[in-house]
Design a protein around this nucleic acid. Structure first.
Lengths: 102, 102
DNA sequence: GTTTACAATGTCATTCCTGACATATAATGG
DNA sequence: CCATTATATGTCAGGAATGACATTGTAAAC
């Protein structure tokens, strides 16, 4: 199966039944995906705390509404790089970043 | 000044005098750079602990010797994504990753 | 000095991520 | 109902990161 597709599927089954071993994801792969999801959730949390819309946040970090939505959704096309940069731009400290991913 | 150049310069002055405010790096920018450097150092540490050459490590993570060198050197062309993936491939846990960046 | 092994640095074609845009799908209130 | 506002999802041209390769630097050993 294609790798991107697999990831996307993994994300769905996540919410439903939290099944990861169902698909043959290696330990690294799932750790990586988990990190992206955790960072995405943190981004949403921070955005909502500031009562910003995705479009407003997008403007602040010089991105687009769709990309913010994808970041928060843990979309496979989003890099950890972008998530980290966005969170840092929102004033999140390295320490909190660390707490988020561990 | 060009952003990439600036980063490269920042890296040098790092080793010499640890001056960051000298160049007008924002808090996010320097936090991001610090993270990349920290992850790069951790990669080297892990590699040496296993007594691997850069070339050997490169093969293990399906990359190249030059890219490993750049990762360890904190080169601006290296993404945090690649560093994280490489460390995970080396068996580093999310918890240790977190400890590394904070 | 030269040979050997490893690491650093530069360049480049290919691959992957990005912002932008279009459009769809809620959710809310009139 | 239907606007309006927010979010989700798909697509794509352009730019950034990647592995590969070549070359250079460095240090040890002989």
């Amino acid at each position: 199966m294609d790798k991107r597709k697999k990831e996307k599927l993994a994300k769905k089954s996540w919410k439903v039944g939290s099944v990861v071993e169902f698909l043959d994801l290696s330990a690294e792969e799932s750790a990586y995906i988990e990190m992206r999801l955790a960072l995405g959730e943190k981004l949403r949390e921070r955005r909502l705390r500031r009562k910003l819309t995705q479009a407003e946040l997008a403007k602040a970090i010089e991105s687009s509404q769709s990309r913010v939505a994808k970041m928060e959704a843990g979309d496979p096309t989003v890099s950890i790089d972008l998530l980290v940069k966005s969170l840092l731009a929102l004033g999140v400290s390295k320490k909190e970043l660390a707490r988020t991913i561990s």
